[in-house]
Amino acid sequence: MTAWVAGGFALIAGVIWLVQFSPVLVARSVRVEGVPRGAVAQIMRRAAVPIGTPMVRVDTTAIADRVIATATLAEVSVGLSWPSTIVIMASPRVPVLAVKNPQGQVQVVDAEGVAYATVGAPPKGVPLIDTVENPPSRDALRAGIAVLHALSPSQRGRVTNVTVSGANMVTLKLGTVTVVWGGASEPELKVRVLTALLGHKGFRTIDVSAPRTPVTR
């Protein structure tokens, strides 16, 4: 029995040494997933993974915190792929609006209303938002984003400009048609009415702010 106990302790000690201190199970490589190839190098630099450190002693939380500081990323998680790879899984922010900051620069904004990068011009398919505030408030951005989310994908792709002049007044430029959306109420009904009216040619303005009594001009 004593020999069995001694053998058990020796086995446990061996496993602890193998995992905690042995050069066998150490971090030797890093794999980045979920982002375009061009973003990998920057993430690797920010991650600063301690190559050569035993896998169980790698601080994955600290790595994730360093990487998420990259403003263009929405989510980051870090895991271990045994025996020797650190895996960084990142989700990039997706632009839904573009805004001009007080310096006149164009910044892209994600679905959470976060302005996260400066660009030369709004990306294709990303409308520019105008507000009475400069820079626009988070509430104004969210009001514009909520309207875009309510539209059908085909309608959303045709929006070139969003104007938020108040909590209850959002106006869109949808192709050549100005759409007065109004506030956040009854978005499904507004989309149905808008879709029906867009089927008629000749309207330059469609006002669905009161969707049961729309106005066209």
Rank of each mutant, 00 (worst) to 15 (best):
T2S: 08
T2D: 01
A3R: 13
V5H: 07
G7R: 08
G8M: 14
F9I: 13
G14P: 05
V15H: 07
W17G: 08
L18Q: 10
V19T: 11
V24Y: 09
V26A: 11
A27R: 00
R28A: 11
R28L: 07
R31K: 13
E33W: 00
P36E: 10
P36Y: 07
P36F: 08
R37V: 13
A39Q: 12
V40T: 14
Q42H: 11
I43K: 00
I43D: 02
R45L: 14
A48D: 15
A48S: 15
P50I: 09
I51V: 15
I51Y: 10
M55C: 11
M55N: 06
V56L: 15
V58R: 03
T60Y: 07
T60D: 10
A62Y: 04
I63W: 01
D65K: 12
R66N: 09
A69Q: 14
T70F: 14
A71K: 13
S77W: 05
L80T: 07
S81G: 12
T85R: 12
T85W: 06
I86D: 00
V87C: 05
I88R: 02
M89G: 05
S91E: 14
S91A: 15
V94S: 10
P95E: 03
V96R: 01
V99D: 00
V99Y: 00
K100S: 06
Q103Y: 10
G104K: 09
Q107T: 01
Q107W: 06
A111S: 12
V114C: 02
V114G: 02
V114H: 02
A115D: 00
A117Y: 01
A121F: 15
A121Y: 14
A121R: 15
P123Y: 09
G125R: 14
G125V: 13
P127V: 07
D130S: 14
V132M: 09
V132G: 08
N134F: 01
N134D: 07
P135D: 04
P135Q: 06
S137R: 07
S137C: 09
A140Q: 04
A140V: 02
L141E: 00
R142N: 08
I145P: 00
L148H: 06
L148F: 08
L151W: 01
P153C: 09
S154I: 06
S154E: 13
Q155M: 15
R156A: 15
G157W: 14
V159P: 02
N161G: 11
A167W: 05
N168M: 08
N168V: 07
V170H: 02
T171K: 08
T171F: 00
L172G: 03
K173Q: 14
L174R: 00
V177C: 05
V177P: 01
V180C: 10
G182Y: 04
G182H: 05
G183E: 06
A184Y: 03
A184L: 11
S185E: 14
S185R: 13
R192D: 09
V193G: 10
T195L: 07
T195I: 12
L198I: 12
G199L: 11
G202I: 06
F203I: 04
R204E: 07
R204A: 10
T205M: 11
D207P: 06
D207Y: 03
V208F: 06
V208K: 01
A210V: 14
T213S: 12
P214N: 03
